[in-house]
Simulated scan of single mutants.
Amino acid sequence: MSRRSLHTPAPDAATLRARLHRARQAAADAGTDALLIAPGSDLRYLIGQAGGSFERLTTLVIPAGDAPPALVVPKLEFPGYSDVPTDDLGVDVITWVDGDDPYRLVADRLGKPGRVAVSDMMAALHVLALRDAVAGAEQALAGPVLRELRMRKDAAEIAALRKAGEAIDRVHARMGEWLRAGRTEAQVGADIAAAIVEEGHTEAEFVIVGSGPNGASPHHDVSDRVIEPGDVVVVDIGGPIAEGYNSDSTRTYAVGEPRDADVADTYAVLQRAQQAAVEAVCPGVTAHAVDAAARDIITEAGFGEQFIHRTGHGIGLDVHEEPYIVGGNDLPLEPGMAFSVEPGIYQAGRWGARIEDIVVVTSDGAEPLNTRPHELVVVGS
């Protein structure tokens, strides 16, 4: 019956009020009558508490008009929102108990809207029940509305991302403690996960230790493969700090002298590509252009088919969020946008390499939030 709620630092009420106001205005500008925000990062952004998504409906109703927002929440879950300053935020609280129809409560609050937008990650059982309850209203995704708020980080958000970046850098600085021949990826990964918490995160959100041929799989996890002398190892790690903002950084290591003769030259190409992409970041430059800055170098060196993912993703309360640094995305970059720059080259069945920094767009360029060396770091064999 128990539900865990993380009571972690939240923005002050003035900041949250401003965010709610901007969300209301953004909904109106998008021709949407209301936003229905499920528990998760969007809810945390707007009221300072993420809550949890369960079979019982919890949703923040944000009308585009003058009516106040309302938090519709099961009575037994409401204690998890006790830190939310609902009175200061002007948010009504509507609790319900088992046997009530929460979807009807939402419908009654909305009246007869023509168009409502639901959280991108709202559970289908709630989306479909709301569709039935708010009959006649067009349903859309809230993501395109809220991304306009969340993409541009304020000073406090950037400070939190900087703190997260420093914490994950401290973990990478310790890699020689754990990464060596004779240990399995899983053993190394367990030590890294513990260090992620030790160095200031609330948890290890992900730990990738891709040794030898496993490094050619960008989203490899960990396995029982025993790390061998000469292996190239991709280590991609991150997690949230108490403020909710995430780290995400990748470095590539060699366990002793690399076994494959082509590692040095190929890795040098990757270094040039990653540096070129970071240097391309500037207000007004498109996400497409940053992707191209890395991709063109890798392609010209003959590895285009071995670079099999986008160059980067936005980061904040989610590890992956807008903006996405990918070909075809003509979004102009603006100060305050934060994202990864992480090209990779993957030699299937042999080895892979990736270099990843989080950067924030400044008034005239980019501030990298990760400062560990980009060279191929050799650790003890």
Rank of each mutant, 00 (worst) to 15 (best):
Asp12Cys: 12
Gly111Trp: 14
Gly48Pro: 08
Ala273Phe: 06
Gly244Arg: 06
Gly244Asp: 10
Tyr45Lys: 08
Glu185Gln: 12
Ala14Trp: 00
Val234Arg: 03
Tyr103Ile: 11
Ala67Asn: 05
Ala30Tyr: 01
Thr32Cys: 14
Leu89Lys: 00
Pro343Arg: 06
Asp88Glu: 09
Leu130Asp: 02
His201Arg: 01
Glu205Ser: 08
Ile358His: 00
Glu203Pro: 02
Ala67Gly: 01
Leu331Phe: 13
Arg183Ala: 10
His219Gln: 13
Tyr245Phe: 15
Pro218Lys: 06
Leu130Ser: 06
Gly284Val: 09
Met1Asp: 11
Ala264Asn: 00
Ala277Thr: 00
Gly182Thr: 05
Gly210Leu: 15
Asp132Trp: 05
Asp33Phe: 06
Ala28Val: 13
Leu76Gln: 13
Ser2Pro: 15
Val235Glu: 00
Ile37Arg: 11
Ala30Asn: 10
Glu334Gly: 09
Ala117Ser: 12
Leu89Thr: 06
Leu110Thr: 04
Val319Thr: 15
Ala27Pro: 07
His309Ser: 10
Arg152Val: 10
Ala27Gly: 04
Pro323Asp: 07
Ala137Ile: 10
Val234Ile: 02
His126Trp: 05
Arg174Ser: 06
Val97Gly: 01
Asn246Asp: 04
Ala173Val: 02
Val145Leu: 13
Gly200His: 11
Gly365Ile: 07
Asp248Val: 03
Ala135Asn: 03
Ser41Met: 13
Ser249Pro: 02
